[in-house]
Simulated assay, not measured.
Amino acid sequence: MTINPAPPRLRAELVVLDDRFRTVAGDEYLECLYDGGRWLEGPAYSAAWRCVVFSDIPNDRMLRWDELSGQVSVFRQPSGYVNGNTIDRAGRLISCSQGDRRVVRTEYDGSLTVLAAHLEGRRLNSPNDVVERSDGSIWFTDPPYGITSNYEGHAAEQEIPGCHVYRIDPDGTLTVVADDFLRPNGLAFSNDEAHLYVVDTPGKHIRRFDVTGDKLTGGEVFAPCTAGMFDGIRLDGAGRVWAATHEGVHCFDPDGTLIGKLLLPEVVSNLTFGGPKRNRLFVTATTTLWSWLTNVQR
């Protein structure tokens, strides 16, 4: 099933707060790649497939924007109310299935492998966002958004007290790596993997942890949110943190300074870098998938 994408462009509205942002800002226009979702999330760029896979959570489906044709099609429906996605180093899609309360991997033949669903016999809350580390471990956040109502999942009781950050080792072992969050959300490793950045959405900040082996220490506040709340985050090749907010995308220097903003007409949920040069920023914002060509690479 193919869905015709929306063709219009929008002039990029940039707010330069620091001269360091001037070297980052890119194209004059934003491209609208698709406008027809209910609450879009979790964009993940596949270089092998030349596409962006993203989630339309309340509609219980995953969509696929093709880079060569510009067409949008249904990737999977029902999807298990998938939220966050990432592509692992083997080119496979890893997804946070809120409705099924598990983390799954799409294999090359299209079958699904469950990577995590229970902690000590209790069901996870509703996995939200996910990243892979170079050692093959999978790290994800587990707030209860998918079980608080039937809108983005299935209303259910929370079996695990608290909302944690987890690590799945290559052998399948599931471990809590951080347990002092209100509702952890987006997460991303620094380029050298010495740090893990994690959003605490109701806390309205991003925290930065030191990564030592397979453990996290520290966890100081890296940056507060000045526009609603943070959601998804990504880093570029220079270590700048790009964060989804209620007014658009905020760009932070590695020292934590907010250096600039890309304003959008909708609440932004998540983002990722992609394209042949990894310099194209794909942004999910409520109903719309946007693209912005930048001067940075991931």
Results as ranks from 00 to 15, higher is better:
269 S>D: 04
296 V>D: 00
182 L>F: 12
151 Y>D: 14
298 R>V: 02
49 W>L: 00
131 V>N: 07
258 L>W: 11
65 W>H: 12
96 C>K: 10
44 A>V: 07
173 T>H: 12
90 A>P: 04
261 K>T: 13
88 D>I: 11
205 H>C: 15
225 C>H: 09
294 T>M: 12
134 S>C: 09
233 I>C: 00
132 E>F: 07
107 E>G: 03
204 K>L: 08
99 G>E: 00
227 A>T: 11
137 S>N: 10
52 V>C: 01
216 L>N: 07
289 L>K: 09
95 S>M: 15
17 L>H: 10
135 D>G: 09
70 G>F: 05
231 D>H: 02
204 K>F: 05
22 R>I: 03
156 A>F: 05
190 S>R: 04
183 R>W: 01
180 D>E: 10
126 S>L: 05
158 Q>D: 02
38 R>Y: 00
18 D>P: 07
167 R>I: 10
206 I>S: 00
78 P>M: 04
111 S>T: 12
5 P>S: 12
17 L>V: 09
39 W>L: 01
32 C>H: 02
295 N>W: 06
179 D>F: 13
141 T>L: 12
270 N>D: 12
211 V>D: 03
267 V>Q: 10
209 F>G: 05
259 I>Y: 14
264 L>C: 13
128 N>W: 04
74 V>P: 02
114 V>P: 08
102 R>C: 13
283 V>D: 04
109 D>A: 02
60 D>A: 07
242 W>Y: 12
245 T>V: 13
253 D>E: 09
276 P>R: 11
69 S>G: 14
87 I>Q: 11
249 V>K: 04
271 L>E: 05
56 D>I: 00
176 V>F: 02
51 C>G: 04
197 Y>G: 14
8 P>Y: 08
233 I>K: 02
102 R>L: 08
284 T>S: 06
142 D>N: 05
88 D>W: 07
197 Y>Q: 14
9 R>M: 03
143 P>G: 06
278 R>P: 04
3 I>K: 11
68 L>A: 11
45 Y>K: 06
193 E>L: 13
10 L>D: 03
179 D>L: 10
129 D>N: 06
206 I>K: 01
226 T>P: 01
191 N>T: 03
